[in-house]
């Protein structure tokens, strides 16, 4: 049996996971202590527009004279938050669908799994763009759009785990006692699935951060909440690509998105290798 302790020990053996964890912790610290770290308030004009990097403004200023470094530091908050929240939404849906399909089986399973297949074959980004444009740009709309459209792959993984646990003797033993399905799921099937849910949450977060950046870059993000995607959107809209400004206006948020996504992916993949029965042989024993 895998205890939490055991998972943790195996996790520390995988180097990628540890690297990811260190990077992610750094980002979280930056997000939490943004007001302390950032040199200026991000929504105030603290310089002249289009300033080049200087001691005063390490990454220059944007088109309306806001400090880009401060924007990026605060952007960490929004990007992380959107990523984790949308992953949360997709995992809530995915867990419910996966648990129901796996536990009840039969026709319910067949119907739900066809829905999952449908969800997996539809090209996601165009659909998201469409939906985001239709709902209008706001923080919560972005969270919902990403969440609602990306529950399929976690649902699938969770279902397969439920199928394994459902056939364990102790689940059967509880059924003999007259337990209702809800009780059995919450008490006996959810706990051993938790580690898989968490690894999925982390993987989905990285994807959500990337998706949010894409949507925002296309102008579908919430313009009042400065995420890294929004920064990129404004940079592009103000022709930063055509001047030297891309060096300090586009490159830093771009690199940060990449690093954050990679750190999530490292953690998520390592966790998944440990907890997903089908990948387990790759790590340890």
């Amino acid at each position: 049996m895998k205890t939490t302790n055991n998972v943790f020990r195996l996790f520390l053996k995988g180097k990628a996971g540890v690297v990811g964890l260190v990077i992610l912790s750094a980002f979280i610290l930056v997000a939490v202590f943004a007001p302390l770290i950032s040199p200026y308030p991000p929504y105030e004009r603290v310089g002249t527009p289009f300033e080049q990097p200087s001691i005063k403004h390490l990454l220059g200023t944007n088109d309306i004279g806001q400090d880009i470094l401060s924007e990026i530091i605060y952007g960490t908050r929004i990007s992380l938050l959107i990523g984790i929240l949308s992953a949360g939404v997709s995992l809530v849906i995915g867990t419910i669908v996966g648990m129901t399909a796996g536990y009840l089986g039969g026709k319910v399973d067949a119907v739900l799994m066809r829905a999952v297949d449908l969800n997996l074959v539809i090209p996601m980004l165009p659909l998201m763009i469409l939906l985001a444009a239709f709902l209008g740009p706001s923080f919560w709309n972005i969270v919902l759009v990403i969440g609602i459209l990306s529950w399929a792959s976690p649902a699938r993984v969770i279902r397969s785990q439920v199928l394994t646990i459902k056939n364990k003797g102790y689940v059967e033993a509880v059924e003999v006692l007259g337990a209702k399905p809800f009780y059995t799921i919450v008490k006996h099937i959810l706990p051993p699935t938790m580690s898989i849910i968490i690894s999925q949450l982390i993987l989905m977060s990285s994807r959500a951060i990337l998706t949010e950046a894409s949507l925002s870059f296309l102008g579908l993000g919430d313009p009042t909440q400065k995420s890294w995607g929004i920064i990129l959107y404004y940079a592009q809209a103000r022709s930063a690509f055509l001047t030297d400004a891309w060096l300090w206006w586009i490159l830093p948020p771009g690199i940060l998105i990449t690093i954050l996504v990679i750190s999530f992916a490292y953690i998520g993949n390592t966790l998944e290798e440990i907890v997903n029965p089908r990948l387990r042989r790759n790590v340890g024993k």
Binding site: M1, G169, Y170, L177, G178, P191
Partner: peptide, 19 residues
């Protein structure tokens, strides 16, 4: 009926929740 009839299974390793 279910309350009146209980079972002890063969495999004591499988039929008790390890958590």
């Amino acid at each position: 009926y279910r309350k009146e009839v209980q079972i002890v299974f063969q495999d004591p390793y499988e039929y008790l929740n390890p958590r």
